[in-house]
Design a protein around this nucleic acid. Structure first.
Lengths: 220, 220
DNA sequence: CCGAAACCTGAGTCAATATTCAACTTCAGA
DNA sequence: TCTGAAGTTGAATATTGACTCAGGTTTCGG
């Protein structure tokens, strides 16, 4: 829990949306910002957005209250930065574990397994994403919009290649994301004692064949 | 939006957990409690738990601030009452639209359609359920635990009758719930211009046959 | 070694609101 | 009409916590 958290590019990069004038200019500054970011992830992850306090963040970071405002404009701004970062991290982690996989059906299984593993290792950041629905709804919608769009593209592609049956790819994408999210919630956030591979295998069978009686499957 | 809301049994019944000494004893009292409950559903649904204020609730209800505490012990207590109520309402609504259906696969489609319709008609209450994850986590877990357990039982039953292939029913239950929740979020809460039946049909095909190429399906 | 820019500090300001409470009103039964 | 239980009222209390700011301290190029 309370994973190493954010890998928000402290210097610049696609994450540095709102940083602007608040970007650190010295080594010391970068270190402090990093500490604040990690502390914020831990504080928000453990206590939730509203219970979390800026003073809690700065205490964890070993800094003074005012220092927070050297790097961020508001409580909500850090929160949003963490949500965006989580999206980037998640996609990257899944992509790494799926690339090289030729067919979509296998990719589905590996992707889900990777997702569950990732959530298990980043419970605090994952909670932040979920809570974003109520704290920064646009950030939350965007998080899943990006996922769904990429997912849909993969499905269209796989369908064209005949790897999967043609269907309504957008609805499929959202349905599959929902599956992952709830399996992640149940088997990663709420309890993580079952092997991720088992969960992924069970779900993969559902995703592949559906519920209809089909021959060949073993009993149980 | 802001549906007629809670049907919390104002008098007694399975919902009256915490009411106890706070239950109204006269007609006037029942009316006031009803107004407060509806107002609370609207306030929480529109503004979210933390933005919502007791004074906002009493204003909507056309009552004085103090009146709230005649019927509730705290802000969180009303919130929990609404979450529990939502679970009861949802299960009831879906059950009504599914009973009489003989086979599970048809029930899946009708159930999802009913769920989407229900969410569309109770956006404010539905938001309350989702936010419960961060305000009253035990109530949230319970909400889905009850769903998942009932779902699993249905699957086991259907599997025994040969209506569906045997599989890991618990994981399946959670996966299917996740599907519904996200399709509901995307096509009911965020946008509700597509017919619920269309969404349900698309998802039902995925649930029934999975993604694997199977013969018989038309294109697109 | 200097001086200015960059950083850091934490007490104090300020607004918001959950909850309390003592006084007041309504109303049914005697 | 009288009485008390039930219900209503809203000003007052108490707490909490985001954000400000007027100084100190550290860093670093020259």
């Amino acid at each position: 829990m309370t994973a190493k958290a954010a890998s928000v590019d402290v210097t610049d990069g696609p994450a540095a949306d709102a940083a602007l004038s608040k970007a650190p200019r010295t080594e010391r500054g970068k270190r402090t910002l990093r500490k604040l970011l990690d502390a914020a992830a831990a504080e928000f992850g453990e206590r939730g957005y509203h219970e979390a306090s800026i003073s809690g963040i700065t205490q964890r970071a070993g800094a003074a209250l005012g220092t927070f405002y050297t790097y961020f404009d508001s409580k909500e701004q850090v929160f949003r930065a963490l949500v965006d970062d989580m999206g980037r991290l998640t996609r990257q982690h899944i992509a790494e574990r799926v690339t090289g996989t030729s067919d979509r059906l296998t990719a589905e299984r590996l992707g889900l397994e990777a997702f569950i593993d990732f959530v298990r290792g980043h419970k605090d950041l994952y909670r932040i994403v979920m809570e974003a629905q109520f704290v920064a709804e646009d950030a939350y919608r965007n998080y899943y919009r990006v996922f769904a769009e990429a997912y849909r593209r993969n499905l269209v592609h796989a369908s064209a290649k005949g790897e999967i049956s043609p269907g309504h790819e957008e609805e499929r994408a959202w349905a599959l994301i929902g599956m992952s999210v709830f399996l992640g919630l149940r088997y990663a956030v709420w309890s993580d004692d079952r092997p991720a591979a088992e969960i992924a295998a069970a779900a993969a069978e559902l995703i592949t064949f559906g519920l209809s009686p089909h021959k060949g499957e073993g009993m149980s």
